[in-house]
Simulated assay, not measured.
Amino acid sequence: MNRSRHLPVAAVSLAAAAALLLSGCGGGDDKDSGKDKIAGADEGGKKSASPGGKKSDAPVVDRPEMKFPASVQLVFDKANVSDPDQTAAANDAENFVKSIRYGIVKQDTEDAAYKFYSEYQSPAFKYAKDQIKQRVDKGFTISGEMHFTDIKVEPVKSEKSAVVTFCSDSSKLYSKEVKTKKVHHTEASISDFDSWQVLMTASDSNKGLWRAKQVEVATEAKECR
């Protein structure tokens, strides 16, 4: 495994579900599950406070800290949305993606960050854990830069849900052996470009927080190249 990218995960392809949600026909499935207390989210460890400065009407969410080494850069283009809820959904979809990479960097399949940004035992929760586990089991972490572009937010029938879509480019992100520190540099190819759909739901118990419920990653996405 030389290239650091999405590894295949069974039973997380949710194209049909996402299509239904985007067409407004799946509103009944996006209700809050009631399991907002995420296992591990309240565990010990440092947490990062929201940025200080001007007072805002936006609620303050006590979020787990994700501090990446200088060798890992995750770059997100700004989502072109103005609605506060859509902005929050886009921001926490970004945090969900970051939390997966953070778990890989930490080499921890039980890291609190991905549990905080996904609904407990949802397909998104299981996807994140599996992505981390596959790399940990193989003794790999990551090094380099991953770029996320064309970020869009599509509200679904329920006001508490939205589908966040974006492209990712991992052509400059590489696998790194944990033991030897060797970085496996590879040539860029179409396999480095993925298209994402992430169903985000607003938390009932933690105002201002949105969590990933379902995720679909289409690999070799020509439209993202």
Rank of each mutant, 00 (worst) to 15 (best):
V164R: 06
D150T: 12
T165Y: 00
S168F: 00
E145S: 14
S175T: 14
A162I: 11
L173D: 05
S161D: 12
S175M: 05
F148Q: 09
F166L: 12
S175D: 13
G139L: 05
E145H: 01
V163Y: 02
E154L: 00
S161L: 04
S158N: 15
S170P: 00
A162Q: 09
M146F: 01
K138Y: 04
D150P: 02
G144C: 06
A162D: 05
G139H: 09
S161R: 09
K138M: 13
K152S: 13
L173F: 04
D169V: 05
S170E: 12
K160V: 12
S175K: 02
M146V: 14
S143I: 01
V178W: 01
T141K: 09
G139W: 07
V163N: 04
E177T: 13
E145W: 00
S175I: 03
K138R: 15
D169I: 04
K172T: 15
K176F: 01
A162Y: 03
G144W: 05
V163Q: 07
S171A: 11
M146L: 11
V156M: 05
D150M: 00
K176P: 03
A162P: 02
I151E: 11
A162E: 08
V153H: 07
A162L: 09
S171E: 09
S158R: 13
K179G: 00
V153T: 13
E145T: 15
S168Q: 09
L173Y: 03
A162C: 07
K157G: 12
K157T: 15
S143F: 06
K172L: 09
F166I: 07
S175G: 15
L173P: 00
E154V: 12
K160M: 08
S175C: 05
S170C: 02
K160P: 05
K172S: 13
G139D: 10
V164N: 02
I151D: 08
S143T: 13
K152F: 04
K152C: 03
K157C: 05
S171W: 05
K152G: 09
S171K: 12
M146C: 11
Y174C: 01
K138G: 06
T149W: 04
G139C: 06
K157Q: 14
D169W: 02
